[in-house]
């Protein structure tokens, strides 16, 4: 089964890297996101606009006060850009995982799926190959965004090391595994890409905003909080932040990391399982 998954994953990856425009989009997209979100939510910047005709000393002072306020809301030394960039990694995973089911739609359309269905391979490996390639794509993009975010001024704690980096990737791997399986399971019977896009468009923004990826949960209205608290993206964002904030003075918040990992592992396992189970009936022709 592993060799089947692997061979099919290679196929996906080959298809993907041969499409230069796709690779280019994957690089450019996170840059735009970071720039856009970084600017749009840069509250200091927003405040400066109406006060721009005041003397610069005063503007600067207000700016400092503002950043302190944000710091107190977001906790400790964390500035908003770092907060947002850390959450953005989970959003990147969301936005790549969403399309895991899309290639099933195309394979069904072009008949390639039939080839897989008459072959003596487990149906689950067809689904898991889609999930695996989606995970690879997601983590690849995460690596890009993470480097770009550093260039843009993401401030990690002074004790942030390779192990923390591995922790970040492990957490995002689990999130991607779960989300890719979730989306594939959700759209497995959908035959047209238009309908598939509709499902994605319905879910992407709510999933992103109803999480702690871009805003702290305690800043949200109650109803949104209750959604954000069950949203795996919140747990992944929190996990990533816990690793990024690793500083010599505070150390790692082990219990927080453990809790987030537990939730993410459960999420990934449950939805991969559902994906594999649904594959048998879901991929079937007609």
């Amino acid at each position: 089964m592993i060799s089947e998954i692997w061979a099919l994953t290679i196929r996906e990856v080959k298809k993907w890297i041969r499409e230069p425009i796709l690779v280019f989009m994957m690089i450019i997209q996170p840059v735009i996101w970071l720039g856009l979100f970084g600017q749009a939510f840069n509250l200091t910047g927003l405040v400066q606009i109406p006060l721009s005709n005041l003397p610069p000393e005063i503007t600067q002072q207000i700016g400092v006060i503002f950043n302190q306020t944000i710091g107190s809301i977001f906790g400790g030394t964390l500035d908003y850009f770092t907060y947002m960039a850390a959450g953005m990694l989970s959003v990147v995973i969301l936005f790549t995982s969403m399309f895991s089911g899309m290639s099933v739609v195309w394979d069904r359309r072009f008949g390639f799926l039939n080839k897989l269905l008459v072959a003596p391979i487990a149906r689950g490996s067809i689904v898991m190959a889609k999930v695996t390639s989606s995970v690879i794509r997601g983590l690849f993009q995460v690596a890009l965004v993470f480097s770009i975010a550093f260039a843009f001024g993401l401030k990690a704690g002074n004790a942030f090391n390779v192990l923390d980096l591995l922790g970040v990737f492990a957490g995002l791997f689990l999130l991607s595994l779960g989300l890719s399986s979730f989306f594939i399971a959700l759209t497995i019977r959908i035959k047209s890409w238009e309908a598939h896009m509709a499902v994605i468009n319905l879910l992407n923004l709510p999933l992103m905003f109803a999480s702690s990826a871009l805003f702290p949960i305690n800043m949200m209205p109650d109803w949104l909080q209750s959604i954000a608290k069950v949203n795996p993206i919140s747990y992944a964002s929190d996990l990533v932040r816990a690793f990024i904030l690793h500083s010599s003075s505070v150390g790692l918040d082990v219990s927080r990391i453990a809790l987030n990992f537990e939730v993410l592992i459960a999420f990934a396992v449950i939805f991969s399982f559902i994906g594999i189970v649904l594959a048998e009936r879901g991929l079937r022709k007609g």
Partner: peptide, 18 residues
Amino acid sequence: TVDEDLTGMENMMLQAML
């Protein structure tokens, strides 16, 4: 049902693996 984006050889290798 062949895959457009792969070469003939790659399609064959994939089939052999399946």
